[in-house]
């Protein structure tokens, strides 16, 4: 939310976000010069992240909980390009729906664009070459991306507003508690939906997944064949 973070923290998170965005832009240039066909996929992924993360659900605590949708992007393009997509989407959300804000954009890029996708992508990289089912890998990566986004958001809030007794850790737990109640089921639901979207892509367009080297070819073909 605009105006929520004190100035020094807003600046700090911007400074963390900028180098990540720079890496993302560099990678984006490389991907697009190699394969122009990736642009529509990048665009539609961004559009989806916009829609999914605009679905603010009425939650028990009244806090702002929503899916993030960044998991699929992290798997397909890696965390750094996801940071660029996330930054664009967050800017659009601020200007189209008055969600989020401009001074808090840096912090939001770090939590939703960098930290969450980094963890999801890590899980995906570890499981990719194992015998774990492709769909379960996607599920886990998406759910972790969503959850970790909210853990980092709580961290950012707690750092900016530490508690009197117990300081930063206690207010971290309080903020985490508020978010976790609604976010855990939401993360699972989001991951289920993204897995089903992923299954659609595997069945209709296995080619692009093989070209982007998202999963080993045999795994994709095995599933695409039966679909």
């Amino acid at each position: 939310m605009e105006g929520f973070l004190p100035l020094q923290w807003a600046v700090f998170w911007w400074l963390v976000a900028l180098p990540c965005l720079a890496v993302g832009v560099y990678q984006l240039n490389r991907v697009l010069s190699a394969d122009r066909e990736a642009l529509p996929l990048l665009g539609v992924t961004g559009g989806f992240i916009f829609i999914l993360s605009s679905l603010k659900l009425p939650s028990v605590t009244g806090s702002s909980s929503h899916p993030t949708g960044t998991g699929l992007s992290a798997i397909a393009f890696g965390p750094w390009i996801t940071a660029v997509i996330g930054a664009i989407v967050l800017l659009f959300q601020a200007l189209f729906l008055a969600h989020g804000g401009l001074s808090t954009l840096g912090a939001n890029i770090v939590s939703m664009g960098v930290a969450g996708p980094l963890v999801g992508w890590g899980a995906y990289r570890v499981l990719r070459e194992t015998r774990v089912s492709m769909f379960f890998t996607v599920f886990l990566a998406c759910a972790l991306t969503d959850l970790f986004t909210y853990i980092v958001t709580s961290l950012q809030l707690a750092l900016a507003f530490p508690a009197e007794v117990g300081g930063f850790p206690s207010s971290f737990i309080v903020f985490l508690g508020i978010f976790a109640i609604t976010q855990v089921p939401l993360a699972i639901l989001e991951a289920v939906i993204l897995v089903l979207v992923f299954r659609y892509i595997v069945q209709l367009r296995p080619g692009i997944l093989i070209r982007l080297k998202i999963f080993p070819e045999e795994k994709i073909l095995a599933v695409a064949g039966e679909g």
């Binding site: 642009l39 529509p40 990048l42 665009g43 989407v89």
Partner: peptide
């Protein structure tokens, strides 16, 4: 702003309206 970022931003901008319509 880097051209690729602008390209992507406009692609996402367009995608949002396309998606909303179909959705």
């Amino acid at each position: 702003l880097p051209e690729t970022v602008l390209d992507l931003a406009m692609m996402i901008y367009r995608a949002i309206f396309l998606i909303l319509d179909q959705l």
